[in-house]
Amino acid sequence: MSEALHAFTTQVPEWRPRVKPIELAEATPEQLEALQVTPSNTKVSDYVLVLANDVETLKVRSPLFNAIMYGRGGLSRAERELGAVGASIVNRCIYCAAVHASRYNQLTKDETVIAKIFADGEEAELDERQAAILNFATRLSRAPSEARPEDMRRLRDAGLSEEEVLDLILSASLFGWANRLMHTLGDPIAKDGFDSGNGR
């Protein structure tokens, strides 16, 4: 069986669950309803089928996730993805980092920012606005949080509005949630033909 990945990559791996996904054929009406409101409703992933074990939480979590990451106005979608990436590198969720780093790259059509973050982590040399966002997201993601008033001031000095600051807090915090599910309930596995030894 394929080995779990341990290095950050922008090639989205597969996710192998450590607990049993529900059987779609045996799903309750409540589970079927919850499964429909997930972002990928054409093909239900093992991840979502695992989460359907706790259907009451899944049912409310999926719309919350979509509102935080895709809601109109406020922080740009790419910068919300940067908040997600910041949390995912602190929590070493290889799968989440890959999904959201690649979305950031698609949205910005610029691969250099993520390449620097994967190479140098929180020390990556970015422009001031990107650096302030990454700094805040990573410090908020520690346990306990290490975000301080100076980290908040840096966001505002970089030009973030109150609405944008709130959206960043929400996206980084949301990935405190997502990382703990993805990283503890399963393993990221290289897809066929994918170089797992050099994920950076």
Partner: peptide, 19 residues
């Protein structure tokens, strides 16, 4: 899964409040 969701939700809530 219920235990993981409880932990994961708390991680979100705690950081949202801190922010």
């Amino acid at each position: 899964v219920r235990l993981a969701e409880l932990n994961a939700f708390l991680a979100y809530q705690i950081r949202l409040i801190a922010g």
